[in-house]
Nucleic acid binder design. Structure first.
Lengths: 189, 189
DNA sequence: CCATAACGTGAATGGTGCTTCATGTTGTAT
DNA sequence: ATACAACATGAAGCACCATTCACGTTATGG
């Protein structure tokens, strides 16, 4: 299911280079960077990009999906800590804060966060990782509510709504302030 | 200061057509619509656009500034009602709600709202209108706080922060929910 | 070491978009 | 009514970008 044949050694190396270069370039210049620029940053020719990805859209989607994986890792890590006794609400706010910082430095992940809440016909590569995030965050929300730290009517959709609206283009102090303002409304009274 | 010479009759008519067409096209397709498309919608040739605006950027900026004017009108209207006895907090939330709806249908205004809070070296045409908005909303905030309906540490910058982060791409119900979540955190306890 | 399939290359193609300018048209002052 | 400045036109110039493909290169199994 994963691969009919293993990639040739140089092909694998180039694929990795392309992914990191694409990630860097998209992070720095947004998803509108040219394929030529990504190729140059990766040290390969344009044609090579098309040997690994059918078109630009798929390349960008792959980069976004990869960023998404680390987000899912973070969420699952939070849930793990919570199970071991860490306060659920603290894990939730910590997660939010980190996501905000990540997104602030990375427009590709911003697109990903947006896709999570809005574009429910996402790229196939995104489906699996979306359920991972959903599971982890859903667990955290339920625990925080059970512990009386989060208002009872708060839902997973609300969290996605927050993720999709976080002010990524603002300076760090403004971002922190934003989170603080929202949190006072979310705490159970 | 305003105009060295009055525009010729047909020139004024075309300028108006261009502005409305540009507004419509940008609203519908975003700021990346082609000049050709705007020209076609206005019923003029591309060259005419360049008779009225030095380049595309200036045309878009003019459209944004125009949208901004109606936003300023709304804010001042709110302040006027407040002075006549309407509760300041209600005016404030009403304003927010309307801005959210407007932005949801109009990416150009979204860009404007973003510019207000972030890009402080904005287009010259924006300077005057920015102070209008600042005056009106600042007054509303102070009144709402004096009336004990708004937490005392809320600032104008906080309001801009909210404006810049409102989830314009979300469906109406989600937008309302977002505002409700935020407001419970803003009300004075 | 060879044969060959996998891989990499980068100039060429076709498309789109912004901007300009030489030419034609029209409002308006006299 | 006339003349002229103001205005409108839209094809052409120029730059950029995604994608393709015919050909050269290289890893790898035998």
């Amino acid at each position: 299911m994963t691969s009919p044949r293993p990639l040739r050694a140089d092909a694998a190396r180039n694929r990795a280079r392309i992914m990191t270069a694409a990630h860097e370039q998209i992070t720095e210049h947004g998803p509108e960077v040219s394929m030529e620029q990504i190729a140059a940053a990766a040290g390969v020719a344009v044609g090579t990009l098309y040997k690994h990805f059918p078109n630009k859209n798929d390349l960008v989607a792959s980069v976004v999906a990869a960023s998404f994986e680390t987000l899912a890792d973070d969420a699952e890590e939070c849930l793990r800590r919570e199970v071991q006794g860490s306060p659920a609400m603290a894990e939730l706010t910590g997660f939010l804060s980190r996501v905000m910082d990540t997104v602030a430095r990375n427009r590709a992940v911003k697109a990903a966060a947006y896709a999570l809440s809005a574009d429910h016909t996402t790229h196939p590569a995104m489906q699996a990782v979306e359920t991972r995030v959903t599971q982890a965050l859903g667990g955290l929300i339920r625990s925080a509510q059970a512990q009386g730290a989060l208002r009872a009517d708060f839902t997973l959709d609300d969290l996605y709504l927050m993720l999709s609206s976080l002010p990524a283009d603002q300076p760090p102090t403004a971002r922190t302030r934003w989170l603080a303002l929202l949190l006072t409304g979310l705490t159970a009274r």
